[in-house]
């Protein structure tokens, strides 16, 4: 059966994910060592211990994301979190930085290593390098690949692959995108935040909702339209004589209908995005995807429960998997 890897921003969300049928849950510490460093979110080392024990008791794995790039002179925090993760008994750590991968392989050789999507390893040569140099066991694939490309990659590598199937859609080469930094000085790569809430302002301007990031208006949404997050890659801009979503519409990924194709392409695990979301979101999405993976394992038709209302833009896309973008 394909492994369902589910998000948990808090201990309560982790419990919700496991109860809803997650095979594995991924989470992070409450600091800049992971790419969802949001206020009020994440785990202290003390909170992680019972969370891991509870998940293991129920047969679920816990993966810890340490997927930001350590600051020069600040590496000790990332090193400490590796030790905290191992002490809590986690099943794997998800890393992006080459230096941290090397440190983990040297100092925590028994701690399983997954390569984060933040490493943007999008071809067999890159993946094989990480596998050979740091004994990485699984690669989280960037969200810029088609199913055919994933199939081609899997034929030339010996490690597991994990593909995003639902949630917020990053359309850039992850780990290398600096758009958020231009507007706020903070990025997912160094600070763990893309378009951080500290720089976001929503304002009712007449009948419109203006969403601003670092003082820049990214969206102006009429009353009857879904409100978006003010992320620059999904902003509405004027370019020449054209006004629109230049990079990508504010929509979310839903690749449920592609699960059989991803299985055929050799993908081991399916990842749901959304550590910043509530336990209500986690429970509902995980239940829907667990029903889908169970159906696939049993050779039944995949159930497709309605999930669009939970997503940004309240509409879904297959993202790069089908490459139908303009």
């Amino acid at each position: 059966m394909m492994e369902l890897v589910c998000p948990a921003g808090t201990p309560a969300a982790l419990r919700a994910a496991v109860e809803a049928g997650a095979h594995a849950v991924y989470c992070g510490f409450s600091d800049e060592t992971n790419a969802r460093n949001f206020p009020g979110l994440n785990f202290s080392p003390e909170e992680l211990v019972p969370a891991v024990a509870g998940a293991h008791k129920r047969g679920a794995k816990v993966l810890v994301a340490l997927n930001t790039f350590p600051r020069a002179g600040g590496e000790k925090l990332w090193h400490q979190r590796l030790a905290d993760a191992e002490a809590a008994g986690v099943d794997a750590v998800i890393l992006a930085d080459i230096g941290l991968l090397d440190y983990a392989a040297t100092h925590h050789p028994n701690l399983r290593r997954h390569l984060s999507v933040q490493a943007a390893a999008a071809n067999p040569d890159a993946i094989n390098f990480y596998a050979e140099a740091f004994d990485v066991k699984r690669v989280v694939l960037p969200r810029v690949l088609t199913v055919a490309e994933i199939s081609a990659i899997n034929k030339e590598i010996d490690v597991e692959t994990e593909a995003f199937v639902f949630g917020g859609l990053c359309v850039m080469a992850e780990g290398r995108c600096a758009l958020s930094s231009y507007a706020t000085g903070l990025s997912p790569n160094m600070n763990g935040v893309c378009s951080p809430a500290s720089h976001v302002v929503y304002a009712e301007e007449g009948p419109d909702l203006a969403a601003k990031l670092g003082g820049f208006t990214i969206h102006r949404t009429p009353k009857d339209r879904p409100a978006p997050y003010p992320t620059l890659c999904k902003g509405c801009f004027t370019s020449g004589e054209q006004t629109g979503h230049v990079f990508e519409d504010p929509v979310s990924l839903d690749a449920r209908h592609l699960i059989p194709a991803l299985a055929k392409a050799g993908v081991t695990a399916l990842k749901i995005e959304g550590r910043q979301r509530s336990r209500a979101y986690v429970a509902e999405v995980v239940r829907a995807f667990r029903a889908a993976t169970d159906a696939l394992a049993d050779g039944r038709e995949l159930p497709l429960a309605e999930l669009a209302r939970l997503t940004e833009g309240q509409s879904a896309t297959a993202g790069a998997y089908a490459k139908t973008w303009r």
Binding site: T10, P39, G40, P226, P228, R277, R279, A280
Partner: peptide
């Protein structure tokens, strides 16, 4: 735990003004 805060925001059932970061912290 019945509703997701972001989904209520997307659907315009919920409006956030002022310190967005503080609201996110409270919600979490």
């Amino acid at each position: 735990g019945a509703y997701d805060g972001d989904a209520l925001f997307f659907s315009r059932d919920l409006i956030v003004e002022g310190d967005t970061s503080a609201v996110v912290a409270l919600r979490n």
